[in-house]
Amino acid sequence: MNFKTRKKRAALAAKTAGVDGLLVTNLPDVRYLCGFTGSNAALVLTGGRAVLFTDGRYTAQAKAEAAGTRVVIANKPAVMAACEWMIEAGVKRCGFDATQTTVAALESMRKAVPAKLRRAMFAPVDPLVAKLRQVKDADEIAKIRTAAKLGCELFDGMLGYLRPGLSEIEVAATLEYEARKAGAEAMSFETIVASGERSALPHGRASSARLPKRGFVTMDFGVVLDGYMSDMTRTVHLGRGQREERDVYDAVLEAQEAAVAAVAPGVTAGEVDEAARSVLRRAGLDGWFTHSTGHGVGLEIHEGPRLAAKQTQRLEAGMVITIEPGVYMPGRFGLRIEDMVLVTAGGYEVLTPSVKAWVEL
């Protein structure tokens, strides 16, 4: 990981935003800029310098992980120590990410500086580091590709395990156990297993409900490897499917593949969303598609860009996004199909190539 280049880019973005210092407190942003993975941190970038503030629990860890960044072990809250240091360093205008800073945190920051400087010291800025994180470098892409590959292997293994009568919790627990055995640090989010009528819940977390003798089973899950996350959804059918179920599945699959095919540098996020939505509109199913088409993935499971209607942000090579249209009919059934897709210079690469065609178990 080229942390030196990342810190320089973040410092340049801060300068462009009109501040001479940048206070970074969002932990994924801190990790992105210096490699530190602890649960308490504040990173200051100013005048070509980078200083990481944390507490005594992380003395050895911070020095090992944040090589190339000065580490200060503070005997007070890291954010307050960082603000006091900035005053001593001559910072006049400190930028902070308004989307990640609570009112209480901002009040603590202000209390850490002399009263006469409080009004002018802190300036809310756009999520500068989060925007840099949207375009992944080669090291990040390699990590995400590995995580996505493991996700596919886990899904393939589950095809021989699923059967009527298992509880959704048993399915989720088995998947997560296999993920851990295969080396996953954690799951990207709480595993979603929704079956039968519950498949109509877009975020139907695994419950005690039993898999039906006949009906859909949707599994939405991801794994974390070396900090980077995967995300995929597959829906299979237990027993013989009815014609309507097959037709809806085929429409969702067509919508998903149309959106994937629309991915390319320069295309807007809204255009990718519309590629999926228009297929479902022609099939008379768009009213049952109740969420956006996708999102970025990296150190966090939901990053930019957001692929939704009327979003004007243009895709760039190096972005990793999800494409995940679905149809949800309350009281009946639902389904979703999701891939992770890398935007490449020439178009796209699907990182989760597991089978998407109709699977009947």
Rank of each mutant, 00 (worst) to 15 (best):
M329F: 13
T235A: 11
D250L: 08
G68E: 12
T146F: 00
K356M: 13
L335E: 11
L280K: 08
I144Q: 12
V30L: 11
V125Q: 12
D286A: 15
E257N: 14
P114A: 07
R70P: 00
L162N: 04
G47F: 02
V223G: 00
L166E: 07
H203D: 09
M229H: 13
E168N: 07
V72H: 07
T5L: 14
L299S: 07
S354P: 00
R133V: 02
G227M: 10
I144G: 01
A275G: 05
T233W: 01
D273E: 14
L315K: 04
E303D: 05
N2T: 03
A81R: 04
Q61I: 03
K8V: 12
F216T: 10
D273I: 00
S195T: 09
M232C: 06
V71R: 04
M329P: 00
F96Q: 05
T233G: 08
A194I: 05
A50G: 13
R306L: 13
S167C: 07
S278E: 13
V79P: 01
G222Y: 08
G18D: 08
S199D: 12
L175C: 03
G270T: 11
V135T: 15
R93F: 11
I144H: 01
A112E: 10
Y328P: 00
F53N: 04
H203P: 00
R205H: 14
A82K: 09
D339T: 14
V272I: 15
V248N: 06
T101F: 05
D126N: 10
R6D: 04
V279Q: 02
K7Y: 01
G239W: 12
R214A: 15
S207H: 03
H291C: 03
H302W: 14
V350L: 06
G241H: 03
G35I: 11
A78H: 11
L12K: 15
V343S: 03
Y58S: 09
V236W: 14
V19G: 06
V236L: 15
G287K: 12
E185V: 03
L335Q: 10
A258W: 04
A209E: 15
T344W: 08
Q256D: 05
L27E: 06
F189C: 02
K131F: 05
P28N: 07
F216D: 09
A179F: 03
A308N: 04
V320M: 05
R145F: 00
V260S: 03
L12N: 06
T352I: 08
L225D: 03
S199I: 08
L315T: 07
V327S: 06
L106M: 13
K111Q: 14
